[in-house]
Design a protein around this nucleic acid. Sequence first.
DNA 1: CGGTTCCAGGAAAGCGCTTACCTCAGGACT
DNA 2: AGTCCTGAGGTAAGCGCTTTCCTGGAACCG
Lengths: 335, 335
Amino acid sequence: MATLADVARHAGVSTATASRIINGSPKPVTEELRARVLAAVAELRYVPNAHAQMLARSHRNAVGVIVHDVSDPYFAEITRGLQRVATANGRLVIICNSFRDPAREMEYIDLLHAHQVAAIVIAGSGYLDSTAASELDDRMRAFEATGGRIAVIGRHQHPGDAVLPDNEEGGFLAGAHLFELGHRTVAVIAGPSSLTTTVDRLAGLQRAADQFGGTLQVSHADFTRDGGEAATTEILAGDPEVTAIAALNDSMAVGALAAMRTAGRRLSIIGFDDMPIARDVTPALTSVRLPLTELGERAMTMALDGAATDEPRVEHVPAELILRESTWPLAQPGG
Amino acid sequence: MATLADVARHAGVSTATASRIINGSPKPVTEELRARVLAAVAELRYVPNAHAQMLARSHRNAVGVIVHDVSDPYFAEITRGLQRVATANGRLVIICNSFRDPAREMEYIDLLHAHQVAAIVIAGSGYLDSTAASELDDRMRAFEATGGRIAVIGRHQHPGDAVLPDNEEGGFLAGAHLFELGHRTVAVIAGPSSLTTTVDRLAGLQRAADQFGGTLQVSHADFTRDGGEAATTEILAGDPEVTAIAALNDSMAVGALAAMRTAGRRLSIIGFDDMPIARDVTPALTSVRLPLTELGERAMTMALDGAATDEPRVEHVPAELILRESTWPLAQPGG
DNA sequence: CGGTTCCAGGAAAGCGCTTACCTCAGGACT
DNA sequence: AGTCCTGAGGTAAGCGCTTTCCTGGAACCG
């Protein structure tokens, strides 16, 4: 493993000079030395040790990202936005999957902290469990105390920079849409009740139910396609009053579609997030859109130009109803 | 920012003792000192500087992953497998998106090299451009020369550890299936011709065509859904002899389905990769399955227990045809 | 020509940790 | 009583790099 010292020796200069040349420091250097050093670098295949650099400069270059699961399309979209902004700013991105486990999340915060990242972006619903939440806050605060910035996406209970999709409003939009179509009893396939996303969307749905005088039948699944399929199978076997389904994300809605196909039934269904797949299933899914990539971009932007302001900045991002073919007026089944 | 020295001072011990206690070194220490140090750690919210640790130990802990694009479901699946194995081994994973750009890929190799990762896994088709390929090889070799391990997924031209899905055989499977159903002229929506994945799958398809006496009409897209949709629109407007389509990945196949729906036409279509979405579109997509998560797991396993063997290890992973509803015998259109 | 500026380049002090080696008691042994 | 351990803890030498400060000589001035 070639070191700077090797390069310097090889080129017959001091490490100081070699370092300056390699990093293109403003200090003037003779062309000849520069050439010698560069030649040595090439010959020795020298690659600077990033850890030593980090230690010597106090410059923090990397940024950390904690998501529930990158391979979930929802987070994949967010991550895409995060990465775009980060790499545009020349930052190295370290991505961590928390798998919705607060403990793991804390570990990762410490890990990223230890790696001296300049900022951490945490995406994904928060935890209702207040012990977990406050321990997390502790960790975040410790990190921020050392000059790091934290931005969260969709986690409004954290007091700090945040970009917040309006989940409550989204829930209301979904509910209002269904009730306006004449549905009176709507089955809701919710996510885990420990997540704020679930709670918020549910709250919006409930507000719509109250306002339109409808009824909600809530069951809980795990935000996965298969969970949605299973939940729907039960719904179809249950209360015949149910004429429409609201799934709290598109993955579960897709599973619901499969269950209905299997059962040979067709209820109106609305999803959430408007993931790319929504327009490619049959019927194309009506969904409450959240601009995921944009959420990521905004959060990373916020995290990177941190320190500019000292008081928490909060950006709200509205939800939007995307009408497609999976919802129809109650009177004319079969849409 | 609290340092080890701060903790030591606070607890009234030397940094050596503090370090030993914090890292749980085997050296025996009085209970009292241990308690004092741990208390200081908690009070000061001390988090060790990972860079300093890396530098002091010569231990390499992180592993790097380079993929074309994590938010592409194909790579999301692979990444999932990579992560599973890596975190199970207590490794930090650094994920980099090359966006199919060899130059960026080289940058990332150097970056990961600089970060002293223990291993690098590169997933995704290689580049046919021989200049790019050889420069890449150069970089990899330099990294390996310092004791790092490299494993590639689906890139057979790299001389080193590799796990290789059998793309050629997959292409053959797809072609054979279509020709056996009685189709004689098959339109192929290929990926960029600069990628080996494209070339290999195409070769298999061609072998099937030769063997069954069929004809291929190849057009190139970019492996995206929209690219597939556009290509299909052209195909439908072209040669009426075409009765089936082979898309070289599922994303493009999904786009093709959309184009057919728009045009009101229904040709048999087969996809590639068997991504999760394949079973949820209508008609459900017949596809050549590659065990993506497994590819990731195997590659990471290989990369991590490196140095065990010195000669390159190559694992071949077979492709498998998954029959669904998007292909049917030529005689009975409408499947 | 002596003195003042410049300027290219080097010496060396860290950055925050780990760890090999050393010290110093107290106890066991001959 | 004198020698040797042995266990608990400290000292300090790096790990590979950056950067401040210093040096020696060339260029410039009156």
